[in-house]
Each structure stands twice: as structure tokens, then as C-alpha cells.
């Protein structure tokens, strides 16, 4: 039995509202995002200027857009790998989730996306506003970079949710997933292009990063929104994101079914 689209929409709204109760946490996140933003501006602006005003296709304006769009997205994409679901799988509470008439993966993703979307209000948009007002962020050259960028953004937060879902379901096979979670946290930020655009990487490392879903969570939407790629390049980014979304959803469905058979609940 599966829930209807309406059910998942309600879960998404619930996730959105749940996040709205943590106001102080959102403020803390904003302070952290902005501080890191200013430090990134200092070092990356200096790097672009040292390279003679352009580095791998980024001038000062483009690097500013990269910094502030990616900082604004930080509260909305899960790059630390921590989920409530991992804990529910470890304790066996997930057995209750399997009894509900909704798809476990669908419910998880809907709630996560709801939380992510809320985070744009107190964290994302103010971070971007600080960047625009204090440092200056140029508008993209083409008007349609904005709608396409928003699609890319929505895809990014969804891919982030479907990917951490994969991480959480590994708990069906290994009891202690904390080591994997730390591994995820370390690699995701770096390969997503959080501190340095992946286009600055040496060739082999950039290829390696592109073979993971992480750039689809941060680098691609940042490129599209900032207008660094346009036309077919931007469309290509979005298509790659759609590919990662489908792949992670399919893998999640398969892991859920396999994991459900593995699930051992210690009763008593």
C-alpha cells in the first residue's frame, strides 16, 4: 500500500514547519555561513587576482557568486550525513515505519526536502543578501538562468536527501554506521566543491568528483544560478542532476526492499 501524492506533500509541509521551530539554530547557522563566506572571499579573491584576474573561467564576480550561492545552499543540503533514520534503523524503530501505509523512502525524502526548503528562509536568503550587500554579487547574464537555477536548486536538495537515505540504509547491514557517516561528511563537502570549485581540481580529481553525486548537490546548481555556465552547459548540468536523482531513488528503493528482509528487531 502506498500513500498518495497528497500524503507526501503533507509530510513535506510538516518537515518545513518542524524546522521553523529552531529559530536560534537558524541564526547560528547564518552566522557560521556568513563568517565562512567572508573567509572564502578573502582567500579566493586573492587567488583570482594572483592569477591575473581570471582563474579557470572565474573572474572576481563569478567567484563571488560561487561563494555566496554555495554558502546560501549549505543549510539546505545535507553534507554531514546525519539523519534520524540512521538512528531508527540502528534501534529497530524503523520496523514501525514499515508498518505505515507510506513508502519509507518517499516519506523520508519528502520530510527532508521540506526542511531544506524552510532553511532557505532564515539561513539561505539572508546569507545571500549579506553577500550581495557587503561584497557584491553580479546578476547572471541571461534572465533564464534564474528559473533554470531554481529547478537545479530543487534537484540538488532532493538529491542530497535521496543520497543520505542510501547512507542511512547501510545500517541494515552494518550496525555502527558512524564511521561511514564521518567518511561521508569528509568527502561530500570536498567533492561537492564547498571550499574550492571542483573546476580548480587537477584533472583526475575533477573526474573523480564528477563520478559521485556530490557536485550535483552544490557545484552544478551554483554554476547554473551564478550564470557561469549558460545555454547547453546549464541544461547539461540539470540533466546530469536528473540522472543522479533517478539513480539514487532506484538504489534507495532496492536497498529498502533488501534491507527490509535483513531487518532484525531485537524484541523482548
Amino acid at each position: 500500500m502506498r500513500g498518495s501524492g497528497r500524503t507526501y506533500w503533507r509530510l513535506l509541509v510538516a518537515g518545513f514547519r518542524r524546522q521553523s521551530t529552531y529559530r536560534l539554530a537558524a541564526l547560528g547557522g547564518l552566522v557560521a555561513n556568513a563568517t565562512f563566506g567572508f573567509l572564502k572571499v578573502a582567500i579566493l579573491f586573492a587567488a583570482v587576482r594572483a592569477a591575473g584576474g581570471e582563474l579557470e573561467g572565474y573572474d572576481v564576480g563569478a567567484i563571488s557568486a560561487y561563494i555566496w550561492v554555495s554558502q546560501a545552499m549549505l543549510g539546505s543540503v545535507n553534507l554531514n550525513g546525519r539523519t534520524d533514520l540512521a538512528e531508527r534503523i540502528r534501534t529497530g524503530d524503523v520496523a514501525v515505519d514499515f508498518l505505515r501505509p507510506v513508502d519509507v523512502q518517499g516519506a523520508f525524502v519528502a520530510t527532508e526536502v521540506g526542511r531544506s526548503l524552510f532553511a532557505f528562509l532564515p539561513r539561505g536568503l539572508p546569507t545571500l543578501a549579506i553577500g550581495v550587500l557587503v561584497v557584491g554579487v553580479p546578476l547572471p547574464d541571461h534572465a533564464w538562468a534564474l528559473p533554470l537555477g531554481l529547478v537545479s536548486l530543487l534537484l540538488a536538495v532532493t538529491i542530497s536527501a535521496t543520497t543520505v537515505y542510501l547512507l542511512a540504509t547501510s545500517g541494515f547491514w552494518i550496525v555502527e554506521t558512524r564511521g561511514l557517516q564521518i567518511l561521508y561528511m569528509v568527502l561530500s563537502g570536498f567533492l561537492a566543491g564547498l571550499f574550492i570549485p571542483i573546476w580548480f581540481f587537477p584533472e583526475w580529481l575533477a573526474v573523480l568528483a564528477s563520478a559521485t553525486p556530490f557536485p550535483a548537490m552544490l557545484m552544478y546548481p551554483t554554476d547554473v544560478l551564478s550564470g557561469r555556465v549558460d545555454g547547453s552547459g546549464a541544461l547539461m548540468h540539470v540533466l546530469v542532476q536528473v540522472g543522479w536523482l533517478l539513480a539514487t531513488v532506484a538504489a534507495g528503493q532496492w536497498l529498502t526492499r533488501a534491507g527490509r528482509r535483513r531487518l532484525e528487531v531485537q524484541g523482548g
Binding site: L24, G28, A34, L39
Partner: peptide, 18 residues
Amino acid sequence: LIDGAETTNAFVYGGRYA
């Protein structure tokens, strides 16, 4: 701060980055 613990991350981990 309790819930706002991330504020201090800006300076501890931001400090490490700096």
C-alpha cells in the same frame, strides 16, 4: 546558546580555516 551552538562553530572551525 544551546540550540544556537553553530554560532560558535563560525569561530572555532572558521578559526581553524582562517
